[in-house]
Amino acid sequence: MTEARRQILEKLGAVAADEYCIPNTVQPAFVARSESLALLLKRKLEAVHTSVDIVGSAEQVGQSIAGFLNAHGSPLKVGVVPGVDTSSIPVPPGLDFYPCQDMAACHTVLTSAAFGIAETGTVVLPSSLQRPTLANFLPDNCIIMLDEVNIRPCMEEAFSSVQNSDAGMPRALNLISGPSKTADIEQTLVYGAHGPIQLHVIIRAV
């Protein structure tokens, strides 16, 4: 192994390292022209089979969750990841939150994104004890909350926000743009290949 390493590096040579100077000046202009970052994010996510509500109050969060579950005929039981505090969310009648331990046994999960990316219609979820990555992939329904202030215009800004956060780079940094899908059978899109079949994003404009 160390011999392979030595030989590869010897072949590649320590070429006089030329300085890295490739400025990143090209970014898609449509982001700057857009209505608002939240609306652009919503539009982009909706285009990839994701329902999005922009809400202005805590009551509306509960309503948005119930509305999503009802629309898909799913039970109103929601497993919540450790990082989400539901105590401030008024619960509409019939809706039930419970702390979720086993993601494989969870049908609907509620988690939160650290950032959003308007350019690509993406929510960004750094993994941690508070925000387990498997919550994004095992349950059939995945509900992700995002604060509007955390929406970044483009990917570069979201990455640098993650890098500069206290936790730094997480083990898994998930960029999610829509539910799981596959086109491996005759190039025809089918949702819910492995991960969530339904994805719902709630943007909190408070």
């Binding site: 350019e119 993406t122 004890l129 387990p132 990555t133 083990r171 998930n174 960029l175 999610i176 743009s177």
Partner: peptide
């Protein structure tokens, strides 16, 4: 595929962190 971004783009950096209870122990 003509997509702006695929549904999932993930950056894996190292094994699970000390305080985490899920994720691989070896990377």
């Amino acid at each position: 595929t003509g997509q702006e971004l695929t549904a999932y783009t993930t950056l894996f950096t190292g094994p699970r962190r000390a305080e985490e209870t899920a994720g691989p122990e070896q990377f």
